[in-house]
Amino acid sequence: MIQHLVDGILVGSFLSLGAIGLTMAMHILRFANFSHAELLSIGAYCALVFDKVFESLLPVLAEKIGPLSMTGALAISIVLSMAVTGLSAVLIDRFVFQRVRQKGEELSMVFASFGMALIIRNVIGLIFGLSGELYSSDIAFAMVLSRDPMLLVKPDQVFVLIAALVLMVLLHLILSRTTFGFSLRAVAENPNLAQVHGVNLKRMIAAVWIIGGGLGAVAGIFYGLSYQITPVMGRDLVLPIFAATIVGGIGSVYGAVLGGFIVGIASNMALVVLPSGYSPSVPFLMILAVLLVRPNGLFGEARV
């Protein structure tokens, strides 16, 4: 039981990271982005490439850091991958979403995102092949925290959780302490009014994509570090991430963080009561349960 709870928190850490970007983009651009989870794939595969490159250029970087299966090469790759993924997100927006936005309505955007998801997923499959990849093929063994009740935690997961929390705090500081953060919130509240007040809307949208892409990349890499990366990981993660976003309430960054942990914990705890075959339904049940009580999610506001 306690093991399920702890596992859920660890799963929740990367769901939260994915959900933050999604909730911001959904709030400012007002569409359900079905291709957001593909940013996680882009990030994960970027890091895989950088990781291989650095390891071959500087073998010293291939050393593992402490008890983690993380290497120096991968650490640098994470930073580079965040940048590349953020940039890809901006480019996708420039070339596709922005144009669709100008022409059509919200539905067109949802649909375009579905099409983009198909394209990204299959292009990755064409380049990297369809089977799973690992950053490190060594297995990182779990540490026994307690024998009774049995509680096991992997060093990697602790690192992932801490890193995720650090990123979230950083984001919180940016959003609450900087002019940039205020502008961003102003745009989200009311794009027209914000523009009147001299906020550059285009730049803000680009910023949202960079943040979303960057955090998505980290989420994808952390996911790959804990499990494995495949071209279809975006497809597999889209519903849990949406669930986290909706549970938290669209537009609320803090809601997304909480939503990620709630969905992670619920998915793990659900097996205590449900047969394991039903686990794909859990995120959906979470969505439904929350929406029945709070139609705009835990922290969402009714949109004006």
């Binding site: 959904m26 919200e106 669930a243 909706i246 669209i250 339904s281 995120p283 439904l288 929406l291 949109r303």
Partner: peptide
């Protein structure tokens, strides 16, 4: 009954979830 009162991006995702759950069942 459960979902139609939702805003339409919520509705899209909630019904998407219904379909996933349907397949799962």
């Amino acid at each position: 009954k459960l979902t139609l009162r939702l805003r339409h991006d919520y509705l899209a995702i909630a019904t998407f979830g219904v379909a996933v759950a349907f397949e799962n069942v």
